[in-house]
Design a protein around this nucleic acid. Sequence first.
DNA 1: CGGCATCCTTCGAGATACTG
DNA 2: CAGTATCTCGAAGGATGCCG
Lengths: 143, 143
Amino acid sequence: MASKENPSVNKNCPVSATIRLIGGKYKALLLWHLTGQTLRFNQLHRLVPEATPKMLTQQLRELEEDGLISRTVYPVVPPRVDYSLTALGESLFPILEAMYRWGSALMQDEGLMPACTMTDSYSTTKKEQEDCPSCSCHARSKS
Amino acid sequence: MASKENPSVNKNCPVSATIRLIGGKYKALLLWHLTGQTLRFNQLHRLVPEATPKMLTQQLRELEEDGLISRTVYPVVPPRVDYSLTALGESLFPILEAMYRWGSALMQDEGLMPACTMTDSYSTTKKEQEDCPSCSCHARSKS
DNA sequence: CGGCATCCTTCGAGATACTG
DNA sequence: CAGTATCTCGAAGGATGCCG
């Protein structure tokens, strides 16, 4: 088990166990972005620009060591590394979706984010969901 | 908005918004313990002993400032302060429950926590749920 | 492109002591 | 009981430079 984050916290509590794995500074966000799609390092960086490359690497490595994401290195030049969810990582979807829904409702109450609703086709199949145009979540980079 | 935790993170993303409010070191855990019951400071401290009183106060104050919990001070001696969830805090239940379920499944896969299942009466009414004897979650302190 | 190595600064958080 | 006030230290994390 990697996760240097939250080294403390009761070892017998399921909620603590979950926090230990996804409670890192950008972990839930990274997992959310990786839900339903494979992304390269720089794509993730563009989606989470406030994380420095060093932090990104660190968080991604911990997620990998905890078996939540898989990292594929292509021996080409320039280098290419793909990140995607493992089965265990995908099983986090109910949590991430609940966080997304709650945050959406909160932001709407505050008058932000007018129309960024999650398509219900996403919640079950989560294969090729629609992008979310009014926020950067799941907006595939176009450049 | 209080939450000094995660000061960065994309401002337009619902998942980030959620993390900003419940992403603190012990926040989700505290909220989980407060689900369905009012607790005093020392009760919370016993349930989360790895948090120092200072940290507890800090996290609880941020949760209060963010409108997730309410803090009631009784002007008696010895002092007494009760913490409970607000309506907004209770609306986090789907997230916390998802985290609980996922963590439970993970721990069972690892051979830990033999029989700590969440009673389904809890998931909807969440009023007077059964305690969880094999872990400290929602185990009301007896002393 | 996707890192890793170093240096350096900040600040999270523990320990301890005190208070209404 | 439920905190607050200091002091302190180690680690989180930013900036920079180099590399395959």
